[in-house]
């Protein structure tokens, strides 16, 4: 049963990774990163249950806290870029200029 959870986590992680590489909207890229973090969390919780110790759940908890902090900073950076450049697409060359 744990292998099934592991495979689900890996599938979700891969979908997040593919989305991260395919999408060009900074917001959607950010959501794909969140999906990858969630997949890692699922693996933590599944192995915590497999081994019968709570440390995995603790790790997932810390991942959530770090993800919250990361989202706050990332989204404010996206809002700043949008204010200055009027776009959230990471492919516009205007975003790349200093």
């Amino acid at each position: 049963m744990t292998s099934l959870y592991a495979v689900l986590a890996v599938i979700l992680f891969t979908i997040g990774l593919v989305g991260f590489m395919v999408r060009r909207n900074a917001l959607v890229i950010f959501m794909c990163i969140e999906l990858m973090l969630n997949a890692a969390n699922l693996l933590f919780v599944a192995f915590s249950s497999h081994h019968g110790i709570l440390d995995g759940q603790m790790a997932a908890f810390f991942v959530m806290v770090v993800a919250a902090a990361e989202v706050v900073i990332g989204l404010s950076i996206i809002v700043m870029i949008y204010r200055a450049r009027r776009t959230t697409s990471v492919d516009e060359e205007i975003v790349m200029k200093g």
């Binding site: 292998s3 495979v7 986590a9 992680f13 990774l17 593919v18 081994h51 019968g52």
Partner: peptide, 27 residues
């Protein structure tokens, strides 16, 4: 990207399944 996705998927599945050892205890 598709090829990279399939590659990462295969790699991770094999890597993670290596880690599933012993009988599950459960919480």
């Amino acid at each position: 990207v598709g090829l990279a996705g399939v590659g990462v998927l295969a790699l991770l599945v094999f890597a993670v399944l290596q880690g599933v050892t012993g009988t599950p205890i459960g919480i």
